[in-house]
Amino acid sequence: MDKMNKKFFQVINNYRIYFLCSLVFIAMAIFVPNFLTVYNLTNILKGMSLNVMVAIGFTIVMICKELDLSIGTTLTLGAMFVIGFQPALGWGWSLLIAVLAGALVGLANGFLVARAKIDSFIVTLGTMTTVQGIIFLYGKGYALNATDFTVADWLETPIIPFLPPRVLITIVLVLLFQVLLARTRYGRGFYMVGANRETAWLAGLNTEGYVIVAFILSGITAALGGALFAMSLSSATPTIGTSSLMIVVAATIIGGTSMAGGKGSILGSAVAVLTLTILYNGLTNLGAGYEIQILASGLVLAMVVLYEAYALYRADKVKGQRPELLKEVRMLQEGSKGS
C-alpha cells in the first residue's frame, strides 16, 4: 500500500511537467474565451518556437552541469547576421553565417570552460557582454530589416494544420535531440559528464570534448532560433533576445532539468516553454498585464524549486533510517499515551 503510493508519486513527479502543462491547458480552455480555436493554438505554437529552440542547447549545457548566460545575446547575434547578410548573400548563406557565428560563440565558451577551467557562469557572463558589444558595433545601434517577405510568409503559414514550417522545424529538432540524448550512447554521455565528471572521465569519456560540444550546440540552437525568428519578421533589433534568457532558464528548471547536472530532458524543457506560453497567452486574453504574467511564472518556478528542495530535504532526513522500525516506535509511544 505504502509502496504503491510512493511509486505513484514518483511517476507523477517524473512526468510533472506534462501534468502541469495539461492542467494549465485545461484551465485556460475552460476560462478563456476563444482559446480553443485552431488560430489561437497555432499562435501558441508559433509563440513558443523561439524559446523552445534556444532551450534545446541550453538544456544540454545544463545537463553537463554548466550554465550558458550568453544565449540571449547569441540569439540576437544570429538574428542580426541573418538579416544583415541577406541582401548580399541571400537567405541560405546568411542563415549559414548566422549559425556559424553562434557556433563560434559556443566554441569560445566551451574552450574557456573546458580547457581554461573557468567557471561557466563567469565565462558566459563575459561573452554575453562581449557579444552584445559586437552586435551594437555591427549594426551601429540600428535595427536591421529585409524587404523580402516571401520567406517570412512561408515560415509563418501552416503547411499542415497547426504547424507552420518554423514550428515544424522546432519540433523536429526537439525530437531529434531528445532521441540523440536519451537513446544513443554518445548522447547518454552528456548525462554521465554532468552527473560525475571524474567517473565519466575514468569510464573513458572525453569529458572536455563533451562540454565543448554542449556549448557549441547551445550557441547553434540559440543563433538558429534567433535567425528563424528574425526571418519570420524580416527584421532584427540589437536587443531582441534580452528577455529570452530568464524565460529559458526558468522553463528549463520547471521542465525538470537539475542544476546539479546529469538530469533533465529536452522534451521536458520544450513542454515547459509551451506551458509558460499557454499561460501568457491565456492571461493576455483575459486582460491581465505583464505584472500578473511575471508573477505567475515566478510562483510556478518557486513552487517547483521548493517542491524539489523539500523532497530532497525529506529524503535526506530519512536517509539511513528504517521507517518500519520508526513506525513501531511511534505506535508504541501512542499506545502508551493512550493508556
Binding site: T37, G47, F229, I240, T242, S244
Partner: peptide, 22 residues
C-alpha cells in the same frame, strides 16, 4: 482592450497574432 508585451519584440509578435484572432 490593452495588451503589453514588456518591450519584448517576440511577445509583441505573438500579441499581434492574438489580437488578429480576436
Amino acid at each position: 482592450k490593452v495588451m503589453s508585451p514588456n518591450w519584448n519584440p517576440d511577445v509583441q509578435a505573438q500579441m499581434v497574432d492574438q489580437a488578429i484572432g480576436a
